[in-house]
Design a binder for these strands. Structure first.
Lengths: 123, 123
DNA sequence: TTTTATATTCTACATTTGTAGAGTAATATT
DNA sequence: AATATTACTCTACAAATGTAGAATATAAAA
């Protein structure tokens, strides 16, 4: 099952912290911070969904993500690509470079990465 | 207000058809097709949200999207990038080229696009 | 014109999501 | 030890979402 928007946000914090107690998580939020119970509810739901686990330390818990950000994102992206670009990553790529205003440096960096990729592919 | 998942799917069909009557829309769905009323509900919600409009033709309506797929997608993508890559498109690009398995040809095409972009930027 | 297929509106309802209070247990502070 | 703080569970509830039946109007087919 997928994460909802707010759950995803919480995930971001967990990915950043790697592992965190309730108070660490709360710290990550900007004013107006959500109620502790709200976070607790989200954490429980995320645990149920299989995205989060925790280690019990005395009375409280240290939460940590069960999925790597990269993996989660990969799926996400694949869904997007499938939906919007007939499952064609290259079509997406082309759209992407046109629509996102990358600076010259960024574009050159990107080209470098691509060249590297081509090289790797042929190895 | 954003579109939900199913609404987004319906949008895809509208984008593809450009304009469509109820029956054209239903045709787009695979078995098991949703009930007509389900589509009707979605269309109404989407109309309320400002994504869809229609022309009345006698008894029924020809629906059409009010937003271009590209624009809608652009926002979408920007959200993603913001969330997952600290608002850095280039960071995203790099992730993208690494994670998506583009073929050699696709990569070369992409490089071509990038070169073109660089050229355009400096014009 | 009687029957049938279609489109639309209204109503409904279960599930998911966003948010948090009340209650309780454990821990830290005075 | 008495009190305040913190984390957690349970319960709740409004809004959004997914899905569709009932009723109605209308147009198409027989």
């Amino acid at each position: 099952m997928k994460l909802s928007k707010t759950e995803e946000q919480l995930m971001q914090h967990l990915w950043k912290l790697e592992k965190a107690f309730m108070k660490d998580i709360l710290e990550q939020y900007n004013e107006p911070k959500p109620a502790t119970t709200t976070i607790a509810t989200l954490l429980k739901r995320m645990t149920d969904k299989g995205y989060v686990s925790y280690a019990t330390f005395g009375k409280s818990r240290e939460y940590y993500p069960l999925i790597k950000k990269e993996d989660y994102f990969s799926n996400h992206l694949n869904g997007l690509i499938k939906n919007f670009f007939n499952d064609s990553a290259s079509q997406f790529a082309s759209f992407f470079t046109k629509e996102t205003n990358l600076s010259d440096t960024e574009l050159k960096d990107l080209r470098k990465i691509i060249d590297q990729q081509i090289k790797d592919n042929n190895k």
